[in-house]
Design a protein around this nucleic acid. Structure first.
Lengths: 348, 348
DNA sequence: GTTAGCACTCGAAAACAAGGAGTGCTAATA
DNA sequence: TATTAGCACTCCTTGTTTTCGAGTGCTAAC
């Protein structure tokens, strides 16, 4: 177990350093620690131990005559320890009660906000991406003489619609035929299964209305595109101003920029979904330089994956300073994750 | 014309002060101005004039031994002058070419981004709100045994859908009836016209499927709600960091917060739409304390209204420091406005 | 009415001076 | 041998003082 090569006391000291630094945000010195309750040793002893810990790379000294702060490696050890702790009890959290929202979008937005308000960190939630999309239903309806509306429903009730303008009016009978044709051919299909040959056959069967088919298929393609570029909802980005180490002009701008562009966050999401290995708990932690996105080197992010069943999943993330309250954040995240899981499964 | 009570030279000096301040962001002194090309007077003279201008409230002195900066009143005069200038030529702006996007949402997001990138200010665009929504089309379709999908199309092709779960399966014949019923009763109706009596009548006619009606009407109500709470897209919020006077921790946080919450921006939009009076040009300018939203007292915002025809309109806004390049901003905004106008009218 | 000249003001930046938290090392202690 | 007290040293932080210079208002001359 002690693969980190730290004896019990060093461990205790490191733990104490991290804990206090999490609270104060300021380098912690030996004297402070010696007064720390259950270690009954003098500051000098602590200094010796700290020198060792520094040699081992678990803590750093910002400058010669300052206290110590945890290094990324130190945080990592701390977090891993938390992870190992027996299955954490799900905390009661009345504040997290999510109002029933009829649309996933609203629900997720709201979840992000609640999370941000509760934790005082910045949050992000990605809409679920669908590993294997299958068409469930397609419907063409006539809006007026020249306009049709195509409604496409994917498994998981992802709905998309598109207005299709046609040159010549389609009568009801033909419309019915087209609908039949589309549904019988495409129903239950995954995107990969719709190939060129099939499209050609469809167009042929559609006769004079073949160009409508193209438009409908465009809309289908659109749904896929949405899958590849998952929607991401964020909240509480300005919470970073609460942490002095992040709120100097330079870093604040970079972080907020990442939030606004969302591109980088998206990258992070896919990364998280891909490497589903921290999976005993389903929670992953990136600390500082471990972060897959640049210019957030001073942050940590804790992510969890929620399930919507049928191979669809999304990511919840909390982004804060490296000295974030990992313990609490992980608990909270876990709670929200299960919350979302149950909501979505109920709704099915 | 000279209702401001300034002779030509004072005018020139004020203009020069503002211009240089816009560029440098620093208080401008008399010596700087005396070297200003076309005023061939000494710094002493300028000082005298500046004292007058200060008495009149057009400029301020941050502290005794500093140069002068424009006051809100000064900016206002400047902007009004710009407004009066003969209809500004629409500048060519290749960068503003907007890729054809199939969805309004994407289009507006993109427009906001382009605008932000081009101006180096923060931007916002509100989706059009519909003054008098009329239903154009309602369609209920069966997705599977227990689920229906209701698609609602409003005038202007605003589409909304909702999944409706039913207890007992509805056969195709009944579905057709419901569709007929809904469309004949509601088609062309504005929201205000759908009253309780009508709803009761509908339910009665729907017979055993009356609860479906409720759900569909809920969805209709949803569309209205969306109207009251217009979607707002923003971009380039972090541009404010480019202006030192806005990027201290305090103001940056407040401004960015307003951007994240968007509530305040929404307020601003409705305000803009309501007071359609700066309308010779269709452009409105709020300077500093004129701003209807609090905690953006150090900003100015320039807004324009674009039309989608049929009484629908949205707002484009550019938010920056008080010393923003009004002239250019107004031009740009006007360009984008017409751009949007034409795009939307083409798409109809 | 304009301008040169000058004393004055006041902020910004630089220079300086404690003060103090924290360290590393050494020597004494248990 | 591990711990601790003691001490000199480092270097950040804080506050004070000094300097510097841009800019002003006023007065007197043009």
């Amino acid at each position: 177990m002690p693969e980190h090569g730290l004896d019990a006391r060093k461990m205790k000291i490191l733990h104490a350093i991290i804990k206090t630094y999490l609270e104060t945000g300021e380098p912690v010195g030996s004297r402070t620690l010696s007064k720390y309750t259950d270690l009954n040793v003098s500051s000098a002893t602590i200094r010796n131990e700290m020198a060792d810990l520094e040699d081992l790379g678990y803590i750093l000294q910002p400058h010669t005559s300052a206290g110590r702060i945890p290094s990324d490696k130190g945080y990592r050890l701390y977090v891993d320890m938390l992870m190992e702790e027996k299955e954490q009890e799900i905390i009661e959290m009345k504040e997290l009660v999510l109002e029933k929202a009829d649309q996933m979008e609203k629900l997720l937005k709201q979840a992000a906000r609640v999370l941000a308000d509760n934790t005082n960190y910045a949050t992000m939630i990605s809409a679920p991406t669908y590993n294997r999309n299958r068409l469930k239903f397609i419907q063409l309806s006539k809006v007026d003489e020249t306009q049709l509306i195509a409604v496409i429903v994917m498994e998981g009730n992802i709905i998309k619609n598109k207005i299709v303008t046609v040159d010549q009016e389609i009568d009801n009978e033909n419309l019915l035929k087209l609908n039949m044709l589309l549904n019988t051919s495409l129903n239950g299909m995954s995107i990969e299964e719709i190939n060129l040959g099939m499209i050609a056959r469809l167009k042929e069967q559609a006769g004079i209305h073949s160009e409508v088919i193209s438009d409908v298929l465009d809309a289908v393609a659109n749904v896929i595109q949405l899958e590849e570029n998952p929607e991401i909802y964020t909240s509480g980005a300005t919470n970073i101003f609460k942490y002095p180490e992040l709120s100097d002009k330079q870093s604040a701008q970079e972080i907020l920029n990442a939030f606004e562009e969302k591109q980088q966050l998206a990258e992070l999401v896919t990364r998280t979904l891909a490497s589903e290995e921290g999976s005993s708990t389903g929670i992953q932690v990136y600390i500082g330089s471990e972060m897959p996105v640049a210019n957030m080197k001073d942050c940590s992010i804790v992510t969890a994956t929620y399930e919507l069943g049928k191979g669809m999943q999304g990511t919840i993330g909390i982004i804060g300073p490296k000295r974030m309250d990992y313990e609490n954040v992980m608990k909270t995240l876990k709670t929200l994750k299960t919350e979302l899981d149950t909501i979505f499964h109920k709704e099915e």
